[in-house]
Every structure is written in structure tokens, then in C-alpha cells.
Lab assay of single mutants.
Amino acid sequence: VTLFVALYDYEARTEDDLSFHKGEKFQILNSSEGDWWEARSLTTGETGYIPSNYVAPV
């Protein structure tokens, strides 16, 4: 499993987005949709879409 870490804070803009804080780690569930990836936060357990340019591989 490839994990990603948040480089910046992000505040959700829609109900499908996932808010997160810098340093939070994610498991990517689906990265085939372009710039927005479906991810699960390893901190909160919540699932939603995150901007791929806000995260980097651990």
C-alpha cells in the first residue's frame, strides 16, 4: 500500500471533499479520476476526495 502525506492544510469545498491538516497520512483508494483522488485518512478514518497536488508519497 502506497501512503501519501499532506503537504498543506486543506478545507473541504464540497461534501465529497475531505478536509485535512499538514502531516496527515492517507491511503489512496482511487487515483484514476485526474487531479482529485479518493482517499482514506489514516488519522480520522474518513473517506473523500483530496487534491493530488496537496500530497506526496511517504
Rank of each mutant, 00 (worst) to 15 (best):
D16H: 15
Q27L: 14
P57T: 06
A56V: 14
T14P: 03
F4A: 10
W36Y: 12
L18Y: 05
H21W: 09
S52L: 05
F4V: 13
Y10R: 04
S32L: 11
V55T: 04
H21V: 15
N30Q: 08
P51N: 09
W37L: 08
E38D: 04
L3S: 06
I28Y: 03
G48W: 02
S52A: 12
T47A: 07
A39L: 01
E33N: 15
D9F: 04
E33W: 11
S31V: 11
L42P: 02
L42H: 05
G34S: 14
Y54E: 01
N53R: 12
A56N: 06
D9I: 02
E33H: 15
P51D: 05
Y49G: 04
N53K: 12
G34E: 14
P57W: 05
V58N: 05
D9W: 04
A6M: 01
R13N: 10
L7S: 03
K22F: 06
F4Y: 15
R13D: 09
A39H: 00
D17K: 14
Y49L: 14
Y8G: 05
T44K: 04
D16N: 15
Q27S: 08
H21E: 09
K25R: 13
D35L: 13
T44N: 06
G45Q: 07
T43M: 10
Q27P: 00
T14N: 15
G23V: 01
T47F: 07
E15W: 09
A6N: 00
V5Y: 12
G34W: 12
L3F: 11
W36F: 12
L7I: 10
E46I: 11
E15M: 12
S19V: 03
K22L: 06
L7Y: 03
R40T: 13
H21I: 13
E46P: 00
E46F: 11
P57I: 08
S52Y: 08
F4N: 02
V1I: 13
T14L: 10
S19Y: 03
Q27D: 08
G45L: 08
N30C: 08
S19H: 07
A56P: 01
A6I: 01
G45K: 06
L18C: 02
L7A: 03
D16C: 15
G23C: 06
I50A: 01
T43Y: 09
S52C: 10
G45W: 07
V5N: 03
V5R: 04
S41M: 06
Y49V: 08
Y54P: 01
F26Y: 01
V55W: 01
D16Y: 15
E33T: 12
K25N: 07
D9L: 02
D35W: 10
P57C: 07
D17V: 14
E11M: 11
G45M: 08
G48R: 02
A56K: 11
K22E: 08
K22I: 09
Y49P: 02
Y10M: 03
E15D: 13
L18E: 00
E15L: 12
L18S: 01
Y54R: 07
E15N: 12
G34M: 13
R13P: 08
G45R: 04
A56W: 09
V55Q: 01
F26P: 00
L18K: 02
L3G: 04
Y54I: 06
L3P: 06
V55G: 01
T47Y: 08
S19N: 06
T47W: 08
T14H: 15
P51C: 07
A12L: 02
N53T: 11
R13V: 14
T47M: 09
R13C: 13
Y49Q: 09
W37Y: 08
A39M: 05
L42Y: 06
W36T: 06
R13G: 10
R40S: 05
Y8H: 09
A12N: 05
D35A: 11
G48E: 00
S41C: 08
G48H: 02
W37P: 01
G23R: 02
G48P: 00
S41T: 04
T2R: 08
E15F: 11
E46H: 13
V5S: 04
S41I: 06
K25Q: 12
Y8K: 08
P51K: 07
S41D: 03
E11R: 09
T43P: 03
D17Y: 14
Y54Q: 06
E46Q: 15
H21N: 10
K25H: 13
R13W: 09
E15Q: 12
E24I: 02
G23I: 00
K22R: 11
D9V: 02
D17I: 11
L29Y: 06
S52P: 08
N30S: 11
D35M: 12
F26N: 00
L3V: 14
T14A: 13
D17A: 15
H21P: 05
S31A: 15
D16L: 14
W37H: 03
N53H: 12
F20Q: 00
I28P: 03
Y8C: 12
T14W: 15
L29S: 05
T2W: 11
Y54K: 07
G23F: 05
T14D: 12
L29H: 05
D16S: 15
A12M: 04
